[in-house]
Amino acid sequence: MLESSENYIQITGMTFARGDRLIFDNVTINIPKGKVTAIMGPSGTGKTTLLRLIGGQLKPDSGEILVAGQNIAKLSRQELFVARERMGMLFQSGALFSDLSVYENVAFPLRVHTSLPEDMIRDIVLMKLNAVGLRGARHLMPSELSGGMTRRVALARSIVLDPELMMYDEPFAGQDPIAMGMLVKLIRSLNTSLGITSVLVSHDVGESMSISDYVVLIADGRVIGQGTPKALLEQSSPLVTQFLNGLPDGPVPFHFPAEDLASDMLQGGTRV
């Protein structure tokens, strides 16, 4: 475990529910500063929800979330917008502005938050687009991009202000091996050269283990393991080994909570 003074994000005793469903049950997660932390867990456990909680788009029901020492849930609307200027977030869907071209999408944060001259904006935008391999696609509109390209443009947009904290929601989904290798290098180099704290949500166990300094495994509303990749791999907890080795049977449920299949089938009728 790292010292708490070195944690960029400190989540303590946080509980969050969606209606009656408890998504997080009293979890405590620390995310070290200047490191790459991977959040892994089965689909639907609340990884995207966790990023939204950190970004202040959702508020926890109890417990606190400190980001750079600030309690995110207690900030006013205005303070929250200021705090977010230091965060970058790559959405699972990309979420580019559909009325702006690729170039203008990446330039958008610069235009609203800085008063840089146009030629400087151009240089920065082209540099970031180059880093994701899409400098040549700058005149295209978002509707003309493929899914993988959309996420890479979104990635360029989210790093254009050089944030202190970068959150990536599934950056590798839908990327070919070449783009994937490039993204891994990019995420790593942002981290080493700029000292950005990175939070990475991914299902790709191999890739995340190799890229990250620290791993948090969540399942079933709880943290089932955290530590360095090496420590986790050595750990003998059945939960952790099941997830990391991708075994279908074990304590981590593959299914969304439901009554068991046989009784569901035997119930008859047409009730859904």
């Binding site: 917008f81 959405f91 979420a95």
Partner: peptide, 17 residues
């Protein structure tokens, strides 16, 4: 549609209301 495609959310995360 901007809301459904998370454009409003991503604008919030860029720090723009």
């Amino acid at each position: 549609l901007m809301k459904a495609t998370e454009q409003l959310s991503s604008m919030e995360m860029i720090g723009v209301d």
